[in-house]
């Protein structure tokens, strides 16, 4: 099983002909991912080391059966690229690009919910998703991921996602799927989406959740864990001692109240029954104990 992607997932890379798209697209293919197509309207008909390039996602999907796209297009083009992928019938759209305007993200999220309810957006500004040994979409280094389960990982932070994968690999613990949801204001996929998928996944027996300060995503995840999760959750929230961030006028304070601090997030997760580690290494130890007790 695993969640969202596996060895049958066929991927089209939007921006395959650019330096980033080419580098990671080929790495993903080398890992074993079915990278079946790329897009670039000006280079349709060419190929990148055997991966055919099409003008649009729709044409790529029709010719190759791709159902997932990975976007390496610069931020100004992301809004259009995501819509093109959704219109092209993609079930999963992974946006690696960082620096996408918040207004674009808010419009995209609501537009997809309304017009393309069958499409899942992951990111923007995320490392991607990896089901070790089966499918790697994005920029995660496949070498640091040990496959086979039983742990699912969901993370808001890029490098801490790698850290979590690595801690588990060092402890000899396998991962079903590791999802980097990205730390932007309006992520397409939330902690809750991933927790629900892991809860439903027969191969996943425990979940590691990596959060960070800002927003209220961890608090919402805590509510979900308390109400819906039967599988154990180990969490780490970065930023307990981080400098106070920018304060968004009065409006930010009114909207968020006491939410957003690492302390509030940790308290909420503990109250929901999750084990919360003081640092990533301790999260690995806690998870090792959980897995040993399964």
């Amino acid at each position: 099983m695993a969640i969202f992607v596996d060895e049958t997932t066929k991927v089209v890379v939007q921006g395959l002909t650019g330096s980033q798209g080419r580098f990671y697209g080929l790495r993903n293919r080398d890992y074993g991912t079915q990278v079946v197509a790329g897009t670039n309207p000006r280079k349709a008909g060419t190929d990148i080391e055997g991966i055919p390039v099409f003008a649009t996602v729709g044409e790529a999907a029709a010719a190759t059966g791709a159902t997932a796209s990975c976007i390496f297009i610069p931020a100004p083009g992301v809004f259009g690229a995501v819509l093109e992928a959704a219109e092209g019938g993609m079930e999963l759209i992974v946006v690696i690009t960082e620096g996408v305007p918040a207004q674009d993200e808010a419009r995209l999220y609501n537009l997809l919910c309304r017009d393309f309810p069958g499409t899942r957006l992951l990111g923007p500004n995320c490392p991607g998703i990896i089901t070790p040994d089966r499918c790697n979409i994005g920029i995660t280094a496949g070498e640091i991921a040990l496959g086979g389960g039983p742990v699912g990982i969901v993370s808001r932070s890029g490098t801490l996602t790698y850290q979590a994968l690595y801690e588990l690999q060092q402890a000899g613990i396998g991962v079903t799927t590791c999802v980097g949801i990205g730390g932007d204001p309006v992520p397409g996929t939330s902690f809750i989406d991933c927790l629900a998928a892991f809860e439903a996944d027969s191969e996943t027996s425990a979940v590691m959740l990596i959060g960070e300060i800002g927003g209220s995503a961890e608090e919402e995840a805590a509510e979900y864990i308390k109400a819906m999760m039967t599988k154990p959750v180990v969490a780490y929230v970065a930023g307990l001692t981080a400098p106070p961030g920018r304060r968004m006028g009065h409006a930010g304070a009114i909207v968020s109240g006491s939410k957003g601090t690492a302390r509030a997030k940790i308290d909420a997760l503990r109250a929901a029954g999750a084990q919360v580690a003081a640092n990533p290494t301790e999260a690995g130890f806690l998870m090792a104990a959980v897995v040993a007790g399964l």
């Binding site: 808001r156 850290q163 981080a242």
Partner: peptide, 28 residues
């Protein structure tokens, strides 16, 4: 490298009894 790891680094320095002089993320 990475904002999350940088924040995490501040956390462990504090946990070790020290005080960080800065937050610095050099990126990927």
């Amino acid at each position: 490298n990475g904002a999350g790891l940088a924040m995490s680094t501040l956390d462990v320095v504090n946990q070790a009894g020290g005080r960080p002089a800065n937050f610095l993320d050099i990126g990927g």
